[in-house]
């Protein structure tokens, strides 16, 4: 009983980590790339300079680290719980990314965009709930 409880707690902690690390990674990537500005990829020497600028950006590396953290938490969560249980967390991410974009980068999010994001979250939730239960947990 207690070990089952601990398993539940671990799963929820991992899902919370996913819902924060994923959006945080994207927001940090956004911060780094906005700083660099619109990319030039042609001629090839421009592509080379663009690549250098991307990989010299601390925010981009922090973002990549955060996304790797998300991925590890995702894998661990999937090893503990069913996909259909874990997947709805990815619907939260669309809301969190807009919230973090607004709070950390000062992005203006129009009411229509908030409405769109809410509908996307709902849609992802519905998609996730259609997964058949495949295995019984013991």
């Amino acid at each position: 009983m207690t070990s089952k409880k601990r398993l539940h707690l671990q799963t929820y902690l991992l899902i919370a980590l996913m819902a924060i690390a994923g959006p945080l990674g994207n927001v940090l990537l956004g911060k780094g790339m906005k700083h660099i500005g619109e990319l030039s990829v042609w001629p090839l020497s421009d592509l080379f300079h663009t690549g250098l600028k991307i990989f010299a950006s601390g925010s981009v590396w922090l973002g990549i680290a955060s996304l790797i953290g998300f991925f590890v938490a995702y894998m661990l969560a999937l090893s503990l719980a069913d996909y259909s249980f874990v997947q709805p967390a990815s619907s939260l991410a669309y809301g969190v990314v807009a919230l973090l974009g607004h709070l950390m980068l000062g992005e203006r999010v129009s009411p229509l965009r908030w409405a769109g994001i809410a509908v996307i979250c709902l849609g992802v939730l519905v998609v996730g709930r259609t997964n058949p239960r495949t295995t019984e947990r013991v």
């Binding site: 129009s110 229509l112 908030w114 409405a115 509908v119 996307i120 709902l122 849609g123 519905v126 259609t130």
Partner: peptide, 24 residues
């Protein structure tokens, strides 16, 4: 693909359309 899943996909498509329209 079940009709339930199509409903979810349709909602996502509507949401993305709203996000596009809300891009001032």
């Amino acid at each position: 693909v079940s009709s339930h899943r199509w409903l979810g996909v349709l909602l996502v498509a509507i949401g993305v359309t709203l996000v596009f329209l809300g891009q001032n």
